[in-house]
Computed example of a mutant assay.
Amino acid sequence: MTVRDVVFPPGRQALYERNRYSPAIRSNGLLFVSGQVGSREDGSPEPELKAQVRRAFDNLNAILHEAGCTFDDVIDVTVFMVDPQVRFEEIWGVVQEFWGQAPYPTVTAVGVTWLYGYDFEIKVIAKLPERAAA
């Protein structure tokens, strides 16, 4: 059986343990990050949409940092949005604050009807730097 090499961001272990999933797994030089939402430390959603998107990126960046990565190491992104016809432009304006310079990662955007009380979620795969891949 493979032992999962789990990456936990500081201060959020209880949230992941309560919900029974790993925030990220290192495997074969890659980092697979679970979908990150705009949750506060206690797990409640950030109420305002732009703040929720920013917090989702903050939560994502905390995991990337703990694994020795930055968003520049991200190679694939999947985003989920509730009601994208109404919210896409507002969300995508915030996303660009974190996206960095070209070349950009691949991206898949999915419209959904429910995200457990959230309006935005981001899931990524990143290439681990050589020093962090061991």
Score class of each variant (00 low, 15 high):
1 M>A: 07
2 T>H: 07
5 D>F: 04
5 D>R: 10
6 V>G: 04
8 F>N: 13
11 G>N: 14
14 A>S: 12
15 L>A: 06
17 E>S: 04
18 R>M: 10
19 N>C: 07
19 N>Q: 10
19 N>F: 06
21 Y>E: 00
24 A>F: 09
25 I>Y: 00
25 I>V: 15
28 N>M: 03
30 L>N: 14
32 F>H: 15
33 V>R: 00
33 V>Q: 00
34 S>W: 01
34 S>C: 14
35 G>K: 14
35 G>S: 12
36 Q>F: 08
37 V>I: 07
38 G>D: 02
38 G>S: 08
39 S>A: 12
40 R>E: 07
41 E>N: 03
42 D>T: 10
42 D>K: 07
43 G>M: 00
45 P>K: 08
48 E>C: 03
48 E>P: 11
50 K>M: 09
53 V>E: 13
55 R>G: 08
55 R>H: 04
56 A>L: 10
57 F>N: 06
57 F>Q: 09
58 D>W: 12
58 D>P: 09
60 L>M: 14
61 N>Y: 13
61 N>P: 12
63 I>G: 15
64 L>A: 07
64 L>P: 05
64 L>W: 09
65 H>M: 11
67 A>V: 12
67 A>D: 10
68 G>V: 11
71 F>H: 11
77 V>C: 12
77 V>A: 08
78 T>S: 11
80 F>K: 15
81 M>E: 14
81 M>S: 12
82 V>D: 01
83 D>H: 05
83 D>S: 09
84 P>Q: 02
87 R>M: 02
89 E>H: 15
89 E>S: 15
90 E>T: 13
91 I>Y: 01
91 I>K: 01
94 V>T: 13
96 Q>I: 01
97 E>Y: 07
98 F>P: 04
98 F>K: 03
99 W>P: 00
100 G>L: 04
102 A>I: 12
102 A>Q: 06
103 P>Q: 01
104 Y>K: 08
106 T>P: 11
107 V>G: 06
107 V>D: 01
108 T>S: 05
109 A>R: 15
111 G>I: 06
112 V>F: 03
114 W>M: 10
117 G>H: 03
122 I>C: 13
123 K>W: 04
124 V>T: 06
125 I>D: 10
126 A>F: 11
126 A>W: 02
127 K>E: 10
127 K>Y: 07
128 L>N: 07
129 P>Y: 00
130 E>H: 15
130 E>F: 15
130 E>V: 12
131 R>E: 06
